[in-house]
């Protein structure tokens, strides 16, 4: 998949009007990665999680809490762990989870959380690329920036919780300390924003900064020479086996190097309407 050169945006345009055309589930589920940067000079931020390197130390979990002042009872990043097998052939594995900063399906390029947001599509906004070009895009309370980050504008948020329900990964929650700007009787939705405040200033996300195993690799997929691009190519990560819930067609942009098939054996999905799969706990 990694060497498939598809002009993503034009294809999207092409498919845009087709609506509910029956495309094979597998084709929909295959994550799309544009390594050619053919259409725009905006970066496409992505995370590679090298599961060989994750030692389950939780520095990422706590660094995220600290950096983003995340209240107790909810997380923006967690580790799931599981002990498997029968003594003495017992194994224990770790799986770091965060917002997948999905590209959205191929028809409309809108991830489910954005689609669910009543405030989307709202007004137009401008994204300035490094080379000075302007990309226009629509914002909402939850929206996708042209560099791929799925962000929340808490001033616009009305606290309806639809995005929280819509995320198949269950990485969103209400922030008990921030009121929804659009309805101050409610709390705003919150989740990982890839530390946009750091990245926009040229600094890596906090979880990446602190990861002693260097299991988290963050970078620009639109830059073919970036470490993430190289890893995606080298490990052939743009396959349904290297992202979470590929079958949802969300086109996640957190890729896992997973030689031991941990995604399949360990990942605990959210139960409908619940978020307790997204609480970091050590037994």
């Amino acid at each position: 998949m990694s060497d498939q050169k598809q002009p993503e945006i034009s294809r999207r345009k092409f498919l845009g009007g087709v609506g509910t055309v029956a495309v094979g589930a597998a084709a929909l589920a295959t994550p799309t990665v544009n390594l050619e940067a053919a259409q725009s000079k905006a970066p496409r931020w992505a995370m590679v999680m090298d599961l060989r390197r994750c030692i389950g130390c939780r520095a990422c979990t706590v660094a995220c809490k600290s950096e983003n002042r995340v209240s107790l009872g909810r997380f923006r990043a967690v580790i799931q762990e599981k002990t498997m097998g029968t003594f003495p052939n017992t194994k224990k594995v770790f799986l770091p989870l965060m917002c997948n900063h999905c590209e959205g399906n191929k028809e409309d390029g809108v991830p489910p959380c954005v689609k669910a947001c009543p405030e989307f599509p709202g007004e137009r906004a401008k994204f300035k690329t490094a080379d000075g070009k302007t990309i226009r895009y629509r914002v909402g309370a939850t929206y996708k920036r042209p560099d791929g980050m799925i962000l929340i504008d808490k001033e616009k948020c009305i606290g309806c919780g639809k995005c929280i329900d819509a995320c198949p990964y269950g990485v969103r929650s209400f922030d008990p300390f921030v009121k929804a700007g659009g309805d101050t009787t409610k709390q705003a939705a919150d989740k990982c924003d890839m530390c946009a405040h750091r990245v926009d200033n040229g600094v890596e996300p906090s979880c990446v900064n602190t990861c002693q195993g260097r299991a988290r690799i963050f970078g620009d997929l639109n830059d073919p020479n970036s470490h993430v691009s190289e890893l995606v190519k080298e490990h052939n990560l743009a396959t349904p086996d290297n992202v979470l819930l590929a079958e949802e067609g969300t086109n996640p942009h957190v890729f896992y190097i997973d030689p031991n098939n941990i995604l399949k054996t360990l990942y605990t999905q959210r139960k409908k309407g619940k978020l307790d799969h997204f609480v970091d706990q050590i037994v």
Binding site: A59, V62, C211
Partner: peptide
Amino acid sequence: LVKLEGHPDSIRTLGKLCAKGQAGV
């Protein structure tokens, strides 16, 4: 004090800090 991180110039830590260190705040 709002955040702690590893020291990028340390030859021992190579800029890393553990979960406990992060929670020093």
